[in-house]
Design a binder for these strands. Structure first.
Lengths: 207, 207
DNA sequence: TTGCATACTTAACACCGTTAACTATTTTTG
DNA sequence: CAAAAATAGTTAACGGTGTTAAGTATGCAA
């Protein structure tokens, strides 16, 4: 079985190589501006070879999408050990913003890009990962409310509001909409300062 | 001068027709998925005729961008008469969200789409409109702080934070990221409820 | 009437995603 | 061991894209 195993590994390797090339290009140039031919050239294969490993360009997008959510999930996981839910919430916001700033291309792919989805069931599967992250947020908000660390209200609405805020900051950053509008002196720490103020607000809502 | 004037008007009309067709298509299909040939077909002219009126596809994007900001500006203008700055802020948020929900295609164009900008000076001009809207927000926040209706803090940071929140909500809505994650019962009034809670928070920060 | 500008079109280029058909190579089978 | 079949990759092609160059009518000026 040694030969078959080696061949299987080689297939797996090529698939990974395709994803690596595609990831780099998507991040650098965006989805629409990367072509199958570019990906092919980067791995030194014929363009059509890619179609032996992925159904189409969308399938590559999906694979990278899942991968990116796993990366973000991995960054969030350690925060489960923070016992104070309000501290945990703050840390989650920090991790989220850092992720967006460090991986703007991936963030774009995950939360901003219009996924060129066609199959509806795939569409559903596509957001299992996103949903999981959101449910963790809801649970944290509920816990914070229960412990009277956060003003009581509908946890789902509150979670959406919090997510909107950090997403809004990330999206304006990633799509380059802030730095034309914010004075130069404040640009460097804009996201950090904004998040700091936001969490301060949340904390002082206790009553 | 009658004939020359008529000709000038006809040129102006065709330019408008191009923009009308492009606007519809951009909104329906998005920028990347609309082709010059589609625009041309809709106005029953040859594709290359468009290039006599606009330098390239980008130029059409820019024209619609400016136009969209004027529309939003027009919706915001009446709010200048609301004397209480906190009420004005709330109303601005409402108008902003309504604009995004009523014109998701335009909102996308203005705040989300990766503008395929090349010329830097054009890029600057591109955001004069956006900047003007933001400066109105900053002024309102400053006024609210001065009148002790909003907790005192850096007005620019606070404005960015507020903008991020409403933009985040709008962006998640426009790019279809909320309804897969929010329970069905709450979807209908999600944005409205979230904004209501957000403004409530802002008001109760007074001390 | 000729010449020229105007307004538009056709033809073409180099690219795109994707499919079909082809070619080597390796494996399986009679 | 030879023939057949499966594997893994290729080239060529189709219909689409943004954009440019060259060509064609039409109306106006000299």
């Amino acid at each position: 079985m040694g030969i078959a195993a080696r061949k299987a590994k080689e297939k797996e390797d090529l698939k990974k190589a395709i994803l690596d090339a595609a990831r780099e290009l998507f991040i650098e140039q965006g989805y629409d501006r990367t072509s199958m031919r570019m990906i092919a050239q980067r791995i030194a294969y014929s363009p059509t070879t890619i179609y032996l490993y992925f159904k189409d360009k969308d399938a590559i997008f999906h694979a990278l999408h899942v991968e990116a959510f796993q990366l973000l999930g991995g960054r969030m996981a350690p925060l489960a050990h923070v016992s104070d839910p309000m501290e945990r919430l703050t840390a989650m916001g920090k991790v989220y913003l850092e992720f967006a700033q460090e991986n703007p291309g991936l963030y774009d792919l995950m939360f901003i890009m219009k996924a060129p989805v066609q199959a509806l069931d795939e569409k559903h599967h596509l957001w299992e990962e996103g949903d999981r992250v959101f449910q963790v947020l809801v649970a944290t908000v509920e816990e914070a409310m229960k412990k009277k660390l956060l003003r009581k209200s509908d946890a789902e609405i509150t979670s959406f509001l919090i997510w909107s805020t950090v997403h809004g900051m990330s999206a304006l950053f990633v799509r380059d909409r802030c730095f034309k509008v914010i004075s130069e002196a404040k640009q460097a720490t804009l996201l950090e300062d904004s998040l700091y103020q936001f969490t301060n607000w949340l904390r002082s809502l206790k009553p």
